[in-house]
Amino acid sequence: MTGRWSRGWSGGAVVALWMVLLLALWEGAAWYIANVAQVTAPASKLPYPHLVLGTLREHFRPLLEQGAITFGNSITGFVIGSAVGCALAVVMSLSRTVEHTLSPYMVASQMVPIIGLAPIVYGIVHDAALSRVLMAGYVTFFPVTINTLRGLQSVKQEQLELMRSYAANTWALYTKLKLKAALPGLFAGLKLSGPLAITASIIVELMGAPDGVGVLMISSLYYGTSQVYMFWSTVLVSVAIGLVLFLLISLAERLITPWQPEFRANGGEPR
């Protein structure tokens, strides 16, 4: 019953409210560390958020430019990784043999720490942009594959029988039914892997790329406490990039799959 109450409200306002609350909490904690707890170099533990935001505004242009580079590379890798993931899911749904053959290795591939791969990939391709794209693609494909595959397999028996009664061939079965049914799963996977793609790019940047927000991050780390506000600014920027990507995916989901229960006006309440 209570679900009804949560729907009508504009979710954005609530999120904003929580954000303000969080900032206030952060401000309070920073004040506590600086004035009550008597920690040495309190700013390095937790700087005041208003000072961080000040630095963010001061260096807005370079942060934005570097952020855009990271974002661009991540998106490219994300799109490629998603495409590969979808293709893999379709192939696995077509052939159980392929599914069984690949499944254990897909799990294993996710257990390979990407940080270990990053320097190797960078050493092989010697191109910062390309290795960012590759790493972003690598972390993207698994969640997309798994979720899309689940979506493809979630098709109901009756729906399959219906398509069969039309003597639909495999192409029609997929374009008319299975791919549509897999869209919610695909978006669940995209939402998981979007932020991951950003993280992967930043890791590559930390391993010695010439540009990107990760470079600003690591250089501000090396200059010690004086750069602590810059460091936190880069963290905020990377979080913001991840959020932007997440929101873009959510928007696309709403536009492309408006039939999902959570987008319905009554949210599936009883009639």
Binding site: S6, G11, V14, V15, L17, W18, M19, L22, L192, P195, L196, I198, T199, I202, I203, L206, G214, M217, F231, T234, V235, S238, V239, I241, G242, L243, L245, F246
Partner: peptide, 17 residues
């Protein structure tokens, strides 16, 4: 719901940071 949405943004923090 709002708090959970905000929590989801934790996923966007690069581990290295």
């Amino acid at each position: 719901r709002g708090a959970i949405t905000l929590m989801a943004s934790l996923n966007a923090i690069p581990i290295v940071a």
